[in-house]
């Protein structure tokens, strides 16, 4: 009897363990699975030759935890990425800036999109390590378009809404501009003598305000300029260096670029009063002189 109870207990325990194991296994990445990424170019750019480069930002272990790879250590992308909920915007900007300023970082893989605008990773002879990738597009040769597919971050694999791991990821980046213009307008009607002959406008990475490029604006270039062939997807800002005295500069974003407005600020708050002080002075003086004259006239008449 006791022996039977012991056997039954062991069987029950074994059954429990067998039920639990699959539950734990669901959360883990299946390391035997083959990971891949397919990128579809935007419809308007499918005729252009575009090369996609993927950079391994972080490798993934079987639990799905990410570890930053050597090239991106010190970048500080992790915090905004983890905090971002569904949007990785800030982390992406940080990584794009890092990539642009660390030219030694090599792409994990590159692929030129085919005539249908499709690029598949890994390319022949390579294996896609599971992890977080930064995907960046560049034109192949000279392109007439001022647009490129937007860069993006993608986790390969990633979880779906049911928490299942998906090992073949696909992406359809949108087309974004690679040029930014800046134009300046002056609001100084009646005070144009204070206007300088030129100003310097600086294009900066929006996230960090680090300088990317500068240009001199003057009447010769109609106070406007367009930076071209810029890294795609970067959120730019523009600032005016050394705003001229007597002017206040404001920068506003507009379609395709920025507008810098320099408004004249006078050295004195405008004189907005009517001139009234001479009225009593003139009146008093006038009355005074009138009565003096009247008195003299009467005296003269009396003497006569």
């Amino acid at each position: 009897m006791r022996k039977n109870k012991l056997i039954l207990s062991c069987i029950a325990l074994l059954l429990c363990l067998l039920i639990c194991v699959p539950v734990f296994a669901i959360d883990n990445v299946d390391e035997s699975r083959y990971a891949s990424l397919i990128v579809y170019s935007p419809e308007e750019l499918k005729g252009d030759q575009v090369q996609y480069s993927i950079y391994l930002v972080a490798s993934m272990d079987r639990r799905g935890n990410l570890t930053t790879t050597d090239g991106f250590v010190g970048c500080k992308w992790e915090k905004p990425y983890m905090e971002a909920q569904d949007s990785w915007g800030e982390a992406l900007q940080i990584l794009l800036y890092w990539l642009d300023t660390h030219k030694s970082i090599k792409a994990y893989d590159r692929c030129i999109a085919d005539k249908f605008g499709t690029a598949r990773f890994p390319t022949k002879g390579k294996t896609l390590v599971k992890g977080l990738y930064l995907v960046v597009a560049n034109p192949v040769g000279k392109s007439g378009s001022t647009k490129l597919p937007a860069p993006f971050l993608v986790s390969v694999p990633d979880r779906d809404k049911d928490d299942n791991w998906i090992y073949t990821m696909t992406a359809e980046p949108k087309a974004v501009e690679t040029s930014v213009h800046v134009r300046k307008v002056w609001q100084d009607e009646g005070h144009t003598e204070a206007r300088p002959t030129s100003v310097v406008a600086t294009l900066c990475y929006g996230w960090s305000n680090k300088v990317y490029a500068s240009v001199v604006l003057s009447a010769q270039n109609n106070w406007m300029y367009t930076w071209e062939n810029l890294p795609a997807g970067v959120q730019w800002t523009v600032i005016e260096e050394n705003v001229p005295a007597q002017y206040a500069a404001t920068v506003k974003a507009e379609t395709g670029g920025f507008l810098i407005t320099n408004a004249y600020v006078s050295q004195k708050i405008p004189q907005t009063g009517q001139i009234t002080w001479p009225i009593p002075v003139l009146t008093v003086l006038g009355l005074g002189l009138f009565f003096v004259g009247l008195t003299r006239y009467r005296k003269n008449n009396e003497e006569k």
Partner: peptide, 22 residues
């Protein structure tokens, strides 16, 4: 959306970036 990431099985989209309009 600037990028649409599709899963293999469900075909559902997940935003990875929002476009800002001036």
């Amino acid at each position: 959306k600037e990028t649409e990431v599709l899963t293999e099985e469900t075909g559902e989209s997940q935003d990875t970036e929002q476009t800002e309009e001036s």
